[in-house]
Simulated scan of single mutants.
Amino acid sequence: MFTKAAYSENLEANYTMLAKQLDALLIGETNVIANLSNASALLNQFFDQINWVGFYLMENGELVLGPFQGLPACVRIPVGRGVCGTAAATQETIIVPDVHAFPGHIACDAASQSEIVVPVIKDGVLLGVLDIDSPVKERFSDQDAKGLEQFVQILTKHI
């Protein structure tokens, strides 16, 4: 498993290692909830300076809370609303350096200052989104977006 001791200064290498670890962790398991749970736990272990990581899953045209690590969260988010709903609507990764400057931000945890949301798409179908919050402004970079998109690509092989 990924450990901080294995962490290098090369963020791209860290994300490559993380994706390989996710793939190895999920091989042979077909339960979606188990795989999303382990994926969120792995990300929680990987990141520093975050306060929430998890998934919202598409259900009847809206995002519904799925497996996560962190404080209790909003249960339902309409597509097109907030950062998660906007990422679902556009099907594009969104980095928000300051959540208070994002129009319509949904504050589930008052400590959150920045956020990244990555759509989870399999065979052209939006399954949900990966959402990560940080209590630090400008926590997430384009390199994080690229690494998390790689992570989600591996994840979709197992869900």
Rank of each mutant, 00 (worst) to 15 (best):
S40M: 08
P78V: 12
I116P: 04
E29A: 13
G80D: 10
D98F: 03
A73K: 07
I33G: 00
A73V: 00
P97I: 08
A110C: 09
A107M: 13
G70Y: 08
Q69F: 11
V96L: 10
V83P: 02
N60D: 15
I50M: 05
Q69V: 15
T90A: 13
E92A: 04
Q113S: 11
Q49V: 02
A24E: 12
V96N: 04
N31E: 15
P103F: 00
Q69A: 12
Q69T: 09
N51Q: 11
N31V: 06
S112E: 01
C108P: 04
V120T: 04
S112C: 09
M58C: 09
V64F: 08
G128L: 04
G104Q: 02
T86V: 03
A101K: 10
I132P: 06
G61A: 12
V125C: 13
T86H: 04
P72W: 12
L130E: 03
F68M: 15
S37T: 15
Q113M: 15
V96A: 01
V83L: 07
I106P: 03
L26G: 00
V118S: 10
A87E: 06
S40V: 07
G128W: 06
A39C: 11
R76V: 12
V129T: 12
L71S: 13
I50V: 14
L36W: 06
L36N: 03
L65C: 11
I33T: 11
L57V: 05
M58S: 08
L130A: 09
A87H: 00
P78R: 12
I77P: 01
R76F: 14
P103C: 11
F68W: 06
L42W: 04
L25T: 10
A88D: 05
L43C: 08
I50H: 03
N51F: 10
Q45C: 11
S40R: 00
N51V: 12
V32N: 14
I77T: 05
I132E: 06
A41E: 12
L57R: 14
L42D: 03
C74W: 01
V117F: 05
I94F: 09
F102S: 01
P78N: 13
G124K: 13
I116K: 00
I116R: 04
A89K: 15
Q69R: 15
V118Y: 04
I77M: 09
I33V: 14
L42R: 06
E29P: 00
P72M: 13
I132C: 01
V125I: 15
I77Q: 04
V120G: 04
R81F: 07
E59R: 14
E92P: 04
I27S: 11
L130P: 07
M58H: 02
I94Y: 03
C84Y: 05
I95A: 05
G124Q: 02
Y56D: 02
G61W: 13
F68K: 00
A89C: 10
L127M: 11
L130S: 00
V83C: 02
A39L: 08
V96K: 02
I27N: 12
A111W: 02
P103G: 13
F55E: 05
N51H: 06
G80L: 07
I106N: 01
V53H: 07
V129Q: 02
A41Q: 11
I50E: 08
V129M: 08
A24H: 10
G82R: 02
A41V: 02
E92G: 01
V64G: 00
V83M: 05
N51M: 08
